[in-house]
């Protein structure tokens, strides 16, 4: 995939997409007490400090729980696997699960963030979003 083929982030405030196709989820780190938040906040819910810094989160985590969604809004083609992944910073991120048979998904699996095409803009341009896949599954 060439750099030019990478679509813009589907939600730039939450997902940074770099020209080389890599990216990170974005959130806040409280410089005062060390708590992390997703998405970006204006103040810390732990200590109310406003001294927050935008940070890139790690791309590996652990699957806390999951489901197979079989009825959704018209924006999403069913069925799809949906899960919550706990990241080492102490945030829990919802995302779709890709690259694995539904029946092979299990709680506690190590997961890794992957950037994938994710819908289109109102102008019709391809956008990039994120999903998680099991860390022991190689892509490409």
């Amino acid at each position: 995939m060439t750099a030019a083929a990478i679509g813009a982030s589907f939600r730039p405030n939450e997902l940074e997409v770099r020209p080389d196709g890599s990216g990170n989820l974005l959130g806040s780190l409280c410089r005062s007490c060390g708590a992390h938040f997703f998405p970006i906040r204006e103040a810390c819910a732990g200590c109310l400090s406003e001294d927050l810094k935008t940070v890139r989160f790690a791309t590996e985590g652990t699957l806390y729980t999951y489901t197979i969604v079989r009825q959704s809004t018209p924006a999403f083609e069913v069925p799809y696997a949906l899960g919550y992944v706990d990241l080492p910073e102490g945030v829990r991120i919802m995302g779709q699960i890709t690259g694995v048979e539904f029946s092979d998904i299990s709680i506690g699996m190590p997961m890794v963030l992957v950037l994938e095409p994710f819908g289109t803009s109102e102008a019709g341009d391809a956008l990039t979003g994120y999903r998680f896949r099991p860390a022991d599954v190689t892509s490409d």
Partner: peptide, 23 residues
């Protein structure tokens, strides 16, 4: 909501809680 943007539905969220409770 960022979770709606990745495909959250209310049944989906409760399904995930059910799965975790079963575990």
């Amino acid at each position: 909501d960022p979770e709606a943007a990745v495909g959250a539905t209310m049944p989906g969220i409760y399904a995930m809680r059910a799965r975790r409770y079963m575990e």
